[in-house]
Simulated scan of single mutants.
Amino acid sequence: MDKMIEQLFLDSKSVDKSANSLAYQQILILTEKKVDWTYQIWDRLLEDLSHPNNHQRSRAAQYLASLAKSDPENRILTDFPLLWQVTRDEKFVTARHSLQAIWKVALAGPDQKKMVLQHLIERFLSCEDEKNFTLIRSDILQGMRQLYDETHDERVKQSAMDLIERVYDPKYKKKYKTIWK
């Protein structure tokens, strides 16, 4: 990993909010495409999934989700439970940001896509006991929409439609359907 990228990861933990924010944005842009330095940062990101600072947990989850496509060893298949755990973080904003990024893991390959979809579907069906479950469902459907937009996999779209049909509240059913218009 070159010094510039290493500095970005350091800056993303900076107390200087401007440097922190800029580094965060830059890392997300860099990880939109495959990179060759994934494993130089992977273990640090795994550790940061349980960092005392919720911002670091959130960012580590988002970075790992984005780096999954640059994971030729398929480590994400083993490490996914640690990443998924952050989608249930005690801080709702952290959980939500992690959940909003998790769909990117599915871009790494068919096994990753299957795993992510299984988790998203299960969470959608079981989250009614959670606080803010309508937002969680919305984020899940939005993630599925983003995955569909990237892959054009009709099975993803059909899975989302099937989930929406299981919603009893007409207000939320209508809201969720707008994600797919």
Rank of each mutant, 00 (worst) to 15 (best):
Arg88Ala: 11
Arg137Pro: 00
Trp84Val: 03
Leu30Trp: 09
Arg96Thr: 02
Glu32Leu: 15
Val15Gln: 12
Glu150Thr: 01
Ser18Leu: 12
Val116Met: 03
Asp48Glu: 06
Thr31Gly: 07
Leu107Ile: 11
Thr31Pro: 03
Tyr63Pro: 07
Gln112Arg: 01
Lys69Arg: 15
His51Gln: 07
Glu32Val: 00
Ala65Gly: 14
Trp103Met: 04
Asp16Lys: 09
Gln118Lys: 08
Trp37Lys: 06
Glu150Asn: 02
Leu77Ile: 06
Asp149Phe: 01
Tyr24Ala: 04
Tyr24Thr: 13
Asp111Arg: 13
Arg88Ile: 00
Cys127His: 01
Asp71Phe: 05
Gln56Ile: 10
Thr31Trp: 04
Ala61Ile: 04
Ala60Tyr: 05
Leu46Ser: 07
Asp153Trp: 01
Tyr39Ile: 04
Glu73Asn: 12
Lys114Gly: 00
Asp129Arg: 09
Asp48Leu: 01
Leu45Ser: 03
Glu73Gln: 14
Glu128Pro: 00
Gly109Val: 05
Glu154Trp: 08
Leu107Asn: 08
Lys13Met: 12
Ile140Cys: 00
Leu125Ile: 05
Leu99Thr: 06
Trp84Phe: 12
Leu83Met: 03
Asp153Ser: 02
Trp42Glu: 01
Leu64Val: 06
Leu49Asn: 06
Tyr148Ala: 04
Leu99Ile: 09
Ser98Cys: 11
Ala106Arg: 08
Leu45Tyr: 03
Phe133Asn: 11
Met115Arg: 11
Arg96Ser: 15
Glu154Gly: 00
Tyr39His: 11
Ser18Pro: 00
Gln112Asn: 02
Glu150Trp: 00
Asn132Pro: 00
Gln118Glu: 12
Val105Met: 07
Arg145Thr: 06
Leu99Cys: 09
Leu135Glu: 12
Arg44Asp: 14
Gln56Lys: 10
Asp153Gln: 03
Ser66Leu: 11
Leu64Pro: 05
Leu83His: 06
Tyr39Leu: 10
Glu154Asn: 03
Lys13Val: 03
Gln25Asn: 10
Gly109Cys: 07
Met115Gly: 07
Leu107Arg: 09
Thr31Gln: 07
Ser66Lys: 14
Ala101Thr: 13
Leu147Asn: 03
His97Ile: 00
Phe80Gln: 04
Lys157Thr: 01
Gln100Pro: 00
Glu47Cys: 10
Glu130His: 10
Gly143Tyr: 04
His152Gln: 13
Leu82Phe: 14
Ala61Asn: 00
Tyr63Ser: 06
Ile41Pro: 04
Gln146Ala: 01
Thr94Phe: 05
Gly109Tyr: 03
Ser66Gln: 11
Arg75Asp: 01
Lys13Phe: 05
Glu32Thr: 14
Leu67Arg: 09
Arg96Leu: 15
Tyr148Phe: 13
Leu120Val: 09
